[in-house]
Design a protein around this nucleic acid. Sequence first.
DNA 1: AAACCGGGGGC
DNA 2: GCCCCAGGTTT
Length: 349
Amino acid sequence: MSVGSDDFAAGLLAWFDGAGRHDLPWQHPRSPYRVWLSEIMLQQTQVQVVVPYFERFVAALPDLPALAAASLDEVLALWSGLGYYARARNLHAAARACVERHGGGLPRDFDALLALPGIGRSTAGAILAQAWGERFPILDGNVKRVLCRYHGIEGWPSTPKVERQLWQLAETHLPATRLADYTQAQMDFGATLCTRHAPSCVLCPLQHDCVALRTGRVDALPTPKPAKALPQRHVLVLLLEDREGRVLLQRRPPTGIWASLWSLPEAVDHTEARDWFERHVRGNYDAATAREPIAHGFTHYRLELAPLHWRGVTPAGVVRDNEDLRWTERGELSSLGIPAPIRTLLEAL
DNA sequence: AAACCGGGGGC
DNA sequence: GCCCCAGGTTT
C-alpha cells in the first residue's frame, strides 16, 4: 500500500470535507498550545462539553507561558466542572516543564512530548499531526472502534496483541498530506458516524470496504472487554431430612446474598459442618452422602454449593421451629422464599 | 449500575 | 512490557 493512495484515508477526508467539524475553537487559530489543551480536555470528555471550557481557559491563559505562570489553583478553577482533575495538574506541570526545558514552547518532537506528564503516545501523535501536519497516527477509543470494524479485527482492542496490530494499521493508513484534517476526521467519524451503538453504515464513506459490515459483525466489534474472572467460593450446605421426609431450613441473615430467604444451613468446612450438625440434630455425621455440587453465578463471584445429605435424622432437643429454623414439609416449599439453586436441589430429592 | 477510557504506575 | 487502577460520565 503506497503512501497517499489509501482508500481509508481518502474516504475519511472526503467525508470530513462534507460532514466533519470545521469550526471548533481549537481549529481557529490552530496553535500547538491550543491543540494540546484541546486534546487533554477531550481525553475523557465530549466535544460539546469541552468547547465552552476551552474558550474560557484560553481567554484567561492564552499561551503556554501564561499557563506556566499561573498558580495551580487558578488552573484548577478554570478546569472546575470538567472532572478528572489529574489532567489539569499534569497540564500545569507540563507547561512549567516546557518553560524549563523547551524555552516556553511545546516541543516539536515525539519523545520530548511523550516525556511530558499527561501526554501518551496517542496524544503526542495528535499534537504533532494537528499542530504541525506531521505524519503521526492516533489511537483513541474512536479510532480503535473504526479500525476493528473496518478490518474485522476480533479480540478486545486493549490487549497488547490487538493494540500493536491497530497501531500498525493506523500507521499504514496515514495519508501523505492533510494530517491535521485527517486526525480531526477520525475523531469526528468515530464520534458521529461509526458510533458504538447503531452506526450509520448506510451513510458511511467506507461501507464498501468494511469487513464488519460485509460479515454482519458491526454490532459485535470491537470485541467487548472480557468480564474479569470472578472469584470462586465454596460452601458446604447441610441437607437434613427427618423420618417423615421434612427438611431443615434456615433463614438467611437480613443482609447479603439471598437476604432473609429460607435456605439450607451452611458451613465453610467439615469441622464447622460437624459442629453445626452435633448442636442441632441427632444422628451420625459420617453417614452423610455427598451430592453433586451446584454451581451458581453472581455478578461478583461464583459460588459452588456442595450438599451433604442425611436421611432419618431427628431434631436435637434444643432445636424447635423458630424464626430462623424450621422443619419443612415438601408441600410447603412452593410457598416459601427459597434461592433458586436451593429450590432446584430440594425439588430433586 | 455497568461499561467505558488514555495515561500513569506498579511489578 | 503487561496488568490494573483512578476518576467521572454515558448508556
